[in-house]
Structure formats: C-alpha cells, structure tokens
Amino acid sequence: MKRILLFSLSLIIVAGFFGCKKDVPISDSLTGTWELRQDGGGWGAIVSHKPGNDTLVIFTSTAYSFYNKNKLVRSGAYTVRRDTSFMYGQLKNRIIFDGHTDDMRQFFDIQNNKLSFWIDAYDAPMVMYQRLK
C-alpha cells in the first residue's frame, strides 16, 4: 500500500512539474515596437496602411508612447488586467492607460505578431498594429 501511495504521489509531482508552463505576463507580450496596419470599424470602413507609415506605438513593461509620422502624440503609464468583455462575454486582456479606469473599456489581443485594440462596444472603432521589434 505504501508503494502505491508513494508511486502515485511521485507521479502527481512529476506530472505537475512537466505539465505546468510558465505564463508570460501579459504586459511582456506587449513590449516592443508596433506599426499601424489597419484602423476603422464601427460604422466606417476599415483603412489599411502600408509598412513604413511611421505611425507607431512603443511599449515597455510599464510605459507606452504613441507616434504619428515619428512625432510623439501621447505617452504615459499603462496597466493590463484580465476583465470580462461585455461584447464577447468572456475574459479578455484589458488595457488601462494612465490609470483611467473610468474611461471607455479598451481591450487588446495579440496573434501572429499583430496587436489589435478595440473599445468594448459593438459599433466602436478598432486598430491593428504589426510588431516591428
């Protein structure tokens, strides 16, 4: 009986060790330089932007900077947390700029080196950036 218990306990520990993966903090996945590729939505058409348009967002682990044609437009601190999107009815990555938790709720997603931002409303605009580095 002791051998079965010891074997079971060992198996659980080994499975837990190899089965667990370390999650990358959400803000670390944002870190880098991103260039605008699409914007629009809501009631308007989606506009595509060519590479080299110099409309960038740069994220560090705690700060952001938005540039339009290489000119700084906005910068500050941000935080990320998991929150339920009203639009999707599930947990998504919410970004909060400069501690403004009462502003319109903005969410983001990263897939295939593409960063999409959207406001949590059906007719709201969206933007999509491509990772440069």
Rank of each mutant, 00 (worst) to 15 (best):
T62Q: 09
G76S: 08
Y64E: 02
W43D: 15
I96K: 05
Y129C: 07
R3T: 13
S48K: 14
M1I: 03
D39M: 15
F17G: 10
T62I: 07
L91A: 11
D123Q: 12
D123K: 08
K50C: 06
F7W: 09
R105I: 05
H100Y: 13
A124F: 02
L72M: 06
F66S: 10
F107A: 05
A15N: 11
Y122H: 11
Q111K: 15
R82N: 11
D83M: 07
V127R: 10
R131Y: 04
G19L: 09
R82P: 00
S65G: 09
D83K: 10
T33D: 04
G42K: 02
N70S: 14
M128D: 01
T62F: 01
V24R: 11
F117G: 01
G40E: 06
T62L: 03
L72Q: 04
L30Q: 06
D102P: 01
F18A: 12
D98M: 04
I119K: 04
T60A: 06
R94A: 08
K22D: 13
G42L: 06
K71I: 12
R81C: 07
T101V: 13
L9A: 15
I13K: 00
I46N: 06
D28T: 14
L6D: 04
Q90C: 07
Y78C: 03
S65R: 14
V73L: 11
G16A: 07
T60V: 10
S85A: 05
L115T: 01
K114V: 01
T60Y: 03
M87Q: 12
F117L: 05
G19D: 07
N113W: 03
L11R: 02
Q90W: 00
I119D: 08
G76W: 05
I96T: 12
K114Q: 14
D23I: 10
L56A: 04
D123M: 09
M104P: 09
M1S: 07
D103S: 15
G44Y: 13
A15Y: 12
I12W: 03
M104E: 13
F66M: 10
R81L: 11
R105H: 13
F86L: 11
W118N: 06
T101D: 12
Y64A: 01
G99Q: 10
K2E: 12
F86A: 13
I4H: 06
Q90E: 14
